[in-house]
Amino acid sequence: MRYAILLMGAPYSDQASHSALRFARALVARGHRLEAVFFYHDGVYNAARLAAPPQDEPHLVDAWAALANEHRVALQVCIAAALRRGLLDEREAVRHGKDGVSVEAPFELTGLGQLVDIGTRCDRLVTFGP
């Protein structure tokens, strides 16, 4: 089946991100196709390029990137939710006159329309939140 995930919990604050990641791994292990993970609400912090958790804890940002690269999963971050929370890719950093970049590929800033699109296109959209 074709799956998509909506993640709305902040990494390390809630279980949501850990659960979503395990669910994502389980899906592809079972031979399903995971088309996209959409990050919304506090879930956008999963895209924070500068996250530096202690070395003996799972690195969630890197884990999402690895999943995306291994299985061609789109990592879509709601741009409105991200900008409010200080998460900017290079284009947005320039546009807003900021001298730092906090989001990089394979994460991409995109609109809520993408969430509607994957929800319609995939067989299942599974939500993880706090």
């Binding site: 919304y40 609109g111 809520l112 329309g113 969430l115 509607v116 699109d117």
Partner: peptide, 8 residues
């Protein structure tokens, strides 16, 4: 999210 979906 509801408004965007409706707009689409």
């Amino acid at each position: 999210a509801a408004l965007v979906a409706a707009a689409f």
